[in-house]
Nucleic acid binder design. Structure first.
Lengths: 197, 197, 197, 197
DNA sequence: GATGAATGAGCGTTCATTCAT
DNA sequence: GATGAATGAACGCTCATTCAT
């Protein structure tokens, strides 16, 4: 990589980091392009060399953040019960989300809750949970007849419900909330489909 | 009520209705004060005779809308099981929400997901569900030791999760989703606290 | 007219006058909305109460200017020869144009020479000349078989050619140029169609 | 010519051709330096190795284009009448102009109709016509007393008037218009100065 | 000479809010 | 109370030009 490319990459990173930071602090609509460039130490116009529209940086930021969730491998452990595997996944998901901070969550929500939202995060997260369940079936922990879609929907909705509630009311602890859900309802939810040993 | 008061009330109503309509059509940020007054057939300045700030009309609209939910009396039926009572409440809540349309739901979400959201809808809805559970206890359907808060939280979060998922993905049917949840998880959730008959 | 209407009219006039003045001085693209409002002593936003887009004021200015030409009644004099009548019209047209100044002419040209020019000044001016010729026919000065369109075209084109040449080369005197044309070519142009006395 | 010189020449040509093409398509103000370089397959900065200012490429383009008109040798034919010689010149001029297309003509006009237009096309074209007339005098077709300047002015203005009218109203056929002028007015214009044979 | 990232002055436009009528 | 003209802070975005690589 040439020096030039490095510089460009650095500039891009600076913009992304500054935007991320500012959005967490103030919320997307209260961060202006000039704020971002000033914080990045570059000229206003430079922003547009990397992001054609202001909102494009949000998309990228979102993508970056989700990439952490993407990286979360569905490590199925045969040592654990299926309920424990699912709970581990949900807890991990929420741990990453909580670590990002409530402002970022708020940003996601507002970003997603626009007409014609550019990305379908729902589809993505729902797909990941479905995949987890499918793997549990492959591992022989759940029956083949398991209604994957129905269960994945309930789980995904609870995840979103927790996050959304947290955004509305900061005093909620999203990790505790999901633990609570796991402790009481994951087992009953999949109970009928657990393979007999 | 004098003629003047009546006129004023009418104007206020017209503004509210127009705003409601427009927001459903275009989403809150794409509706401007002038749009509302034009649609209402009044002058721009008139708006400010009724609502000091633009966002105030949103608050009022939200309040009006929720008043329908407010009106929903927790009619506990002793004929029904506690799970059926809860399910009836959730189904009713979602029925009213679905009837309002996905755009209105989107509006609420975006309205709520701002820093320092003016109203704590979460607290309100959570309180209503808690109240329902309390009544079930009073009716002797649930044990006095029932962890009201924990259960109310799970239920509320699921409600919000369904709504949020619906906003993200219109093809989801929120009423079916909540029915699904009711059918599988309400019973297990309260099972330990159902009073022996 | 209420005081309010008067004020509004005054504001509109101020904007138009300031724009007109500035455009003559600097040319359209070098005049910015803020220049116009500053010169008018009003706020920047006020401009947009009257002209949705910056370019709209140009259209209006153009229209105002042309209205002078519009007002020019084709006063046919039976005392004059048809050639003299035509020459009088052309001279009058050019006199008004010259009085407006070369910068304004330049502005018209640039305004008109855009893709999809909003107004068809050509059609208008050509129509006026055609009308003049038609009246000469009605007054019995020209034969009924006079090829009105052809002659009107030649005359209109010469008018435009003079103006355009003037814009390109300020040292040209448009009035002399049109007089020159009149003196040499109007007579031959219509000669074949002059009614025998 | 070294390889390097050749490459440079090629690059220059590519820039000129791309600019020419784009300007015809969109009009000068809607073509940006980056469009030109992209279309040429070179880097943005390369443009400035060849043209210090954006407008310089226009000047060059115009010059190139006019060079076709320049090349048009005033081939006086002794076999033709002076009116026919002049008409041939005008028709040829307009043929070349029409072939270039109305968008290019529009571009010239807008380019020329700026304050301090860089080139004096008028002077040039006027000079060419004057030269033609002078040659007719030298060939003995016109009297020595012929008012060259006056006639050249009328002819040039008609040429420009036709072009400008065409730009304003695409449905005009510039070649027919000039033919029309030639058929009716060239003869009368020079009649007094034709040498007796 | 070629490259393309960086620059930043500049401009049009928006829209909630005010206030004289 | 109704009106709607006036306000002006804000902001997104453009694009010719520069210059380090």
């Amino acid at each position: 990589m040439t020096k030039r490319d490095e510089n460009a990459k650095t500039t891009r990173r600076k913009l992304l980091d500054a935007a991320d930071q500012l959005i967490v602090e103030r919320g997307y609509e209260n961060v202006f392009v000039e704020d971002i460039t000033t914080a990045s130490g570059v000229a206003k116009g430079t922003f547009y060399n990397y992001f054609p529209k202001k909102e494009d940086i949000i998309g990228e930021l979102e993508r970056e953040h989700f990439s952490q969730l993407n990286a979360q491998i569905n490590e199925i452990s045969d040592e654990l019960t299926p309920a424990a595997n699912i709970s581990a996944y949900l807890a991990n998901f929420m741990q990453i989300t909580a670590a990002a901070g409530v402002e970022r969550a708020r940003g996601w929500i507002r970003f997603v809750a626009v007409p014609n939202s550019p990305d379908d995060k729902w589809t993505y997260d729902f797909g990941k949970v479905s995949e987890l369940l499918t793997q549990l079936i492959q591992h022989g922990q759940l029956e083949k007849e398991t209604p994957v879609e129905m269960i994945a929907q309930v789980l995904s909705m609870q995840l979103y419900g927790v996050i959304f509630s947290w955004v509305m009311n900061k005093s909620i602890d999203p990790q505790k909330a999901i633990q609570n859900f796991c402790a009481t309802l994951v087992e009953p939810l999949i109970q009928p489909y657990i393979t007999a040993v």
